[in-house]
Structures are given as C-alpha cells and as structure tokens.
C-alpha cells in the first residue's frame, strides 16, 4: 500500500510540475490541480497509513494505537477547501485574461 501511494503521489507531482511549466493557461490550471491532489495525499500519508482504523477516539480509556490520526484528515479537508477556492479564483482570472488578450498564453501573447 505504501508503494502504491508513493507512486501515485510521485506521478501526480511529476505531471503537475511538468504542466505548470507549460505556456498555456489551461495546462497551468490542470497542473496546479494535480499538484494539489498530490499534496493532499501527501498530508494524508503523513498521518501514517492505517487500514480499517477509525479516526475518532471513543469514550473511556482507549489505546491510541487502535485509531488513525485524525489531525491530518482535518488538515486535508481544510487544504481541499482552500485549494478549491483559490483554483476557482485563478480560473476566473484566466478567463478574464483570455477575454482581454485573445490568447491563452500565460504572458498574454505568443512568444516568437
């Protein structure tokens, strides 16, 4: 499972980095989205991978080792919301830029 997750994060990050280095605004948005997925998975992995463990402690004396770490899960939720909002904002700016310059190049004009 660790290997699968590591490969998934690696592939997402690699594709994302390649895409944000491309000159088209659409590639930029997709690249940033892929990167944010990779980062979200990474945060999740930092709480240690557990299978079949609940994230919330029950009442009474319990062994914390039986449970998954709830903090990274809360962090991921926040990160997803914030990433979603800022990406939406970027999309609006992209559309405005496309409308103003008539080009989807990140510099607003084709490089020669």
């Amino acid at each position: 499972m660790e290997l699968t997750l590591a490969i998934a994060i690696g592939v997402l990050t690699g594709s994302g980095v390649w895409l944000i280095l491309r000159p088209r605004t659409y590639q930029l948005v997709i690249g940033l989205s892929l990167l944010s997925y990779a980062v979200n998975l990474f945060i999740f992995a930092m709480g240690r991978l557990r299978v079949g463990a609940a994230p919330v402690l029950a009442d009474g004396v319990t062994n914390p080792a039986d449970y998954a770490d709830p903090v990274p899960q809360a962090l991921v939720l926040t990160a997803i919301v914030i990433g979603f909002a800022t990406t939406a904002l970027l999309l609006v700016v992209l559309l405005v830029s496309r409308g103003l310059t008539g080009s989807d190049h990140v510099d607003g004009r084709e490089s020669r």
């Binding site: 990474f42 914030i82 970027l90 700016v93 830029s97 990140v106 607003g108």
Partner: peptide, 20 residues
C-alpha cells in the same frame, strides 16, 4: 490581469510547498 495571473500562479505553487 497579466501580472495578476503570474502572481496568483506563483503563490498557489508556494502554498502547496507550505502544505508539504
């Protein structure tokens, strides 16, 4: 809008580094 686009992209990428 053009410099805003650059500014936002750079800062979004930096925020991801922050999270990592």
């Amino acid at each position: 809008v053009r410099s805003g686009l650059h500014y936002i992209s750079i800062n979004l990428a930096a925020s991801l580094l922050f999270l990592i």
